[in-house]
Design a protein around this nucleic acid. Structure first.
Lengths: 248, 248
DNA sequence: CTTCATTTCCGTACTCCCTACGGAATCGAG
DNA sequence: CTCGATTCCGTAGGGAGTACGGAAATGAAG
């Protein structure tokens, strides 16, 4: 019978609600202040650094005081996520491709500025204004093509999954560079022993052929970027094509 | 000057190395035993449950004894990952599509059996036999099309990124159902308040249209599956098409 | 000016995590 | 039996999240 309603929705949508009249001891902080402070710490030092104790210390407050503003650490993470999603400020018209590319650029920029986003699961995301704005924007972009409703949903989901997946991958690289002090290429170099001591050429003929062909010469990050752009092109081409097919 | 070589490679490739002659006190455990025990616990209760203390307890050994076999917790996670990657046993020929579909099926099955894989970053993965076998298999699948080498690499990366991303998403759902006790649909239901109290119809016209059109009626998991298959189809079509173009 | 309901603030305590360190225990070889 | 090598592990330190209960600070009422 513990059907309790989640306390998180009113927090996520706190800007849509009028302020209550003041009664009781006045607060020293605010939800926004806690959230933006946590974001600032996480930006600089990763999500783990933005612990309850650390955020409280940054605000010159005891740890337990934060629990007045935020129910628990996971909820704080939700609030952080929706805050930066909302800050992307997705707006603007144009063609299908222009809108998708704007969405992609803003998303990559967001993950670069807040790489800790990659440390948060994107299943069952916080259903706040930022999340809903993203859904609306991508759906509206695809809707310009005039696809049937069900296809529209599929296509929008596919696009945001592809873009988000690539942006997260890049963000993970940024985080690892920061925590390990080594770039992805330095990491590969450090594992040169793999090829010298362990790699079995006969068991991996295709890899060997590609290696000999020099296709592994590009930096790891560039290879990932190439694959992302290639895949995005295929997705968008395919979606546009299916729009023509189903219309004609 | 701390250019120390990572200790993890010999562990990952431990099966390729002959056993040393016994000297000193004989071990009660083995790396394999530690790794498989950790996997068993993580399968049943999540990655967090497979703590050093818990794994040691399961093996009736003191916590610190594990450090004889494994350098640290992150390395244990690497070993767990490569173990299940290797257990997929990716083999078999056929057409491009048949191979890709086999890869996809096995990968989904792997993430369903070991959903904790979704809790591990896939950037800078453990470079063990399992990881390399995956790369080789997908590259070989794409190679049947006769693409130029660079395109080959891009296409293989795109395919495994798409499949892995979808499998991880499903696995995250399984984990959340387990830890929260609620399915994704129950989670949505619990947030009905979103639509009643917070959703702004005018700010989200496209979502509203789709809602009214009934395209949100399908279960959340089915929608994700639809989008995955739709996207995979577009990717494979596009890759095959580019093979024809560049060949002709 | 006092009283009181209300709300914020936070010290203490509990549990659980990883792991550095150093010494005890146990084997085979000589 | 001795000794080198290796495994085993008790102790201790540091950091995480948060339940609980009471102290402190305010506006409003009398």
């Amino acid at each position: 019978m513990e059907e309790f309603q989640p306390r998180i929705l009113p927090l996520l949508w706190r800007r849509s609600v009028p302020a209550r009249k003041a009664v009781g001891r006045p607060p020293r902080l605010s939800v926004d202040l806690v959230v933006t402070t946590a974001i600032r710490i996480a930006d600089a030092e990763g999500l783990e650094a933005a612990s309850m104790a650390r955020v409280a210390a940054e605000l010159s407050v005891a740890t337990m005081s934060l629990y007045t503003y935020v129910p628990s650490r996971p909820e704080l993470a939700d609030l952080m996520v929706d805050e930066v999603l909302w800050a992307r400020d997705l707006r603007g018209g144009g063609t299908f491709r222009e809108r998708v590319l704007l969405y992609a650029e803003r998303t990559f920029a967001m993950y670069r500025a807040h790489p800790w986003l990659a440390e948060v699961s994107r299943a069952r995301p916080p259903l706040g204004p930022g999340m809903l704005a993203e859904s609306e924007y991508v759906l509206a972009a695809v809707a310009t093509l005039g696809l049937p409703l069900r296809r529209l949903n599929e296509a929008a989901t596919a696009i945001s999954a592809w873009v988000t997946s690539a942006a997260r991958h890049e963000a993970e690289g940024i985080l690892l560079r920061r925590t390990t002090g080594r770039s992805t290429d330095e990491w590969w170099l450090q594992r040169g022993e793999l090829w010298e001591s362990w790699f079995d050429v006969e068991a991996h003929p295709t890899m060997t052929a590609i290696w000999n062909g020099g296709a592994f010469d590009r930096a790891a990050d560039e290879q990932a970027q190439d694959a992302y752009e290639y895949g995005l092109g295929l997705l968008l081409d395919g979606i546009e094509r299916s729009a023509h097919d189903e219309a004609g």
